[in-house]
Design a protein around this nucleic acid. Sequence first.
RNA 1: GGCGGGGUCGCCAAGUGGUAAGGCCGAGCUCUGCAAAAGCUCUACCGCGGGUUCGAUUCCCGCCCCCGCCUCCA
Length: 465
Amino acid sequence: MSVRLFNTASRSIELFEPLDAEGRSVKMYTCGPTVYNFAHIGNFRAYIFEDLLQRHLEIRGYDVQRVMNLTDVDDKTIAGCKRCQVPLADFTQQFKDAFFSDLDTLRIKRAAHYPAATEPKYIERMIEMITELQSQDVAYQAEDGSVYFRIARFTKYGQLAHLNLDELRPSGRIQSDEYEKESVGDFALWKAWVPDDGDVFWESPWGRGRPGWHIECSAMATSLLGPQLDIHCGGVDNIFPHHEAEIAQSECITGKQFTKYWLHCAHLMVDGQKMSKSLGNFYSIRDLLERNYSGREIRYALLSVHYRLPLNFTLPGLDAARSALERLDAWGERLRLFASDTPPALGESPAKKRFLEALDEDLNISGALGHLFDWVRESNRALDAGSLTPAEAARVLADFTSLNSILEFEPEAASVPAEVLALVQQREAARSARDWALSDELRADIARLGWQLKDTKLGPQLTRG
RNA sequence: GGCGGGGUCGCCAAGUGGUAAGGCCGAGCUCUGCAAAAGCUCUACCGCGGGUUCGAUUCCCGCCCCCGCCUCCA
């Protein structure tokens, strides 16, 4: 039971060994959202991957301390609060709230900390760090008043992304107001106030301004987790320059290797194309809830593809997720009704072992789910044949429950209105009286109230819609 | 141009140097007052062309196509 993970730094799968001398504690930092809008499913693909990683490490006995930052000041948040004519904090708060609500919808386990960039203690820490970098002469203030990191002074810069900086091709994305930099690759640590920033600024040794994006992660990560992290995650697009910058800043300050394992998830596409607002294929979680998909269905769809592979998100894919989950629901329900009350001490089943071993191998979730469904079919067959004992069923159920501490696939408890429940009872009475006409009429009544009723071997079953 | 990921059944997607998991959809069967649900069963020679090998989807070379990054997008 050793976990192996693909490390972007080495471009290979490595045995996971935490820095902690005891080998138990794992420090994990995950780049969080910029709260200028509702996070989209692409963001949540990353967060669900990180959730899977945390939960799997936990089931393997590690004590994971995870931090996720909230970027609540940047160009977009400033533009947004100006547009809405509200204070920055008010503007970002609504999206912070929405973000946490979406996390719950998707059953993503909460990190230990969600530090926000504008918290005074972190602004203070960032200023301290920039001051230190300046004293080391790796940071300098340019004529525009902003402070930049001098990448020429950090020889490792570009190593994570395997980029040769001399060969970098200008991409036209360089801001025209940054011409004061010594080198185009130098990145901002502190951005000088400009009139467009309005009342968004902090006082600093370099005058009014705000922190650059990269320094916030270095400050919050080292403040909360210490100078060295075991795991640092994000989307592939963060590798360069964001994570390079974090390494440069942090290691200049601490003198230690910043992160041991860098994990990055691939992007998500929608209907085979890059998700973008202009293509109209841009989904937030609430967009999908409005289409009557549930959080766990979205979770399944986003979780079931290996994190380093591009995930093609489609609505039919969500329908497939729904069907797959219903199969698991039916299996669980069947086991529950048949299992004995006391799970036998038979130890871990081979199926559970296979599932976890698949995840050990760089989170091979597709392989793991394959084993799960094999297990579903095998135990259903045994139940059909009458060859599964109630005690064995109890063990299967116990192991499935335990795997659900990773998957979180349990059905949502639907709250059925009393009115509907009463009709169901009346119909059951009609059915036992073999009054089929009344029975069908009652089923139609129930349908009119928005519930679909199916007679299963286990009794009437209600579903919404 | 540089770097990276990928092309496996209608769709999604594992995997291995020895003739290909699983899910969805579809079909058949069982069950069933009806409807449905559920369960079982069935469905692929792995982008193209070479090479290495007794044998390649799996290794090597070339090609085609898709996606991403190249200075603040997960």
